[in-house]
């Protein structure tokens, strides 16, 4: 089910989606009860680069948490690699998350007392793999994002763009296949934003499946396809709509 070695990032070559949401909703119990996500359906193919655009409070963070296995949907089906994750135990979901999904956050989330390379290595700790070779893998990942020369710097001595590149290196060091980015450029100036987006483009070219959640149109414009979240509802933005073939499947009568 999972791709522990991470050698073939572009899996699912048979055309089956890596991520498939069917009528997923999320309601936070009140009072007052908050319906953060109305029935949403979505399919993401391996190697896809999907921009999820929406203003703050639209429900896109909720969507990201569900997609990242950090939260469970209230109703609906979520399949990852063709497996319904609702049937997985908490530990299984954690294992799946650790091995298949890389995260890039708006606020980087680097441990302040660890060097860049140690922060990258942390992503390999919970996989339970051998200690030997971790440092080398982390250094390779840093070299990938062009930061091998700052490997032993503390995050506080790095610029915002550099910190986010360290975070990207951490997201891809375990070769997860899917990288979830939550406002990856939200804390960066425009020049640095361009550099990080270029890096994401390259990751997608290398075969990573990318989901970028943002409120900035310019950032979403770099994605191959886009969906919009508004008031907890997913709508298509100029993409092809293929029912059950699984590129994108809006429901609930709210198609744009």
């Amino acid at each position: 089910m999972t791709d522990e070695t991470g050698t073939s990032v572009r899996d699912g070559a048979d055309g089956s989606p890596v991520i498939r949401l069917v009528d997923v909703t999320k309601t936070y119990p009140g009072p007052p009860e908050v319906r953060a996500l109305r029935p949403c359906s979505l399919a993401v193919q391996p190697g896809d680069y999907l921009g999820i655009v929406g203003p703050s409070g639209s429900g896109k963070s909720t969507l990201l948490n569900i997609l990242g296995l950090l939260d469970r949907p209230t109703t609906g089906v979520y399949e990852f690699d063709g497996v319904d994750v609702a049937g997985l135990t908490d530990a299984d979901r954690t294992r799946l998350r650790g091995s298949r999904i890389g995260f890039v956050f708006q606020s980087f989330h680097l441990l302040p007392h660890r060097t860049a390379v140690e922060n990258v290595e942390l992503a390999l700790v919970y996989g339970g793999g051998p200690r030997a070779g971790r440092r080398e893998a982390a250094l390779r990942a840093l070299a990938d994002v062009g930061l091998d020369h700052r490997a032993h710097a503390l995050p506080s001595t790095l610029s915002g763009g550099e910190q986010q590149r360290v975070a990207v290196a951490r997201a891809l060091v375990g070769s997860p296949g899917v990288v979830l980015c939550d406002e990856p450029t939200g804390n960066l100036d425009s020049a640095t934003t361009e550099r990080v987006l270029d890096l994401l483009d390259r990751l997608n070219d290398d075969g990573y499946t990318l989901l970028v959640i943002t409120h900035e149109e310019a950032v979403a414009a770099r994605a191959r396809r886009r969906v919009r979240v508004h008031d907890g509802t997913l709508t298509v933005d100029g993409g092809t709509l293929i029912v059950d073939g699984g590129v994108l499947l809006p429901r609930g009568g709210s198609a744009a």
Partner: peptide, 16 residues
């Protein structure tokens, strides 16, 4: 707590 969240995202179980 944000470090804990990050560790969970990186694959740490509750017991870890």
């Amino acid at each position: 707590s944000s470090e804990i969240g990050l560790r969970r995202a990186l694959g740490a179980c509750r017991r870890h």
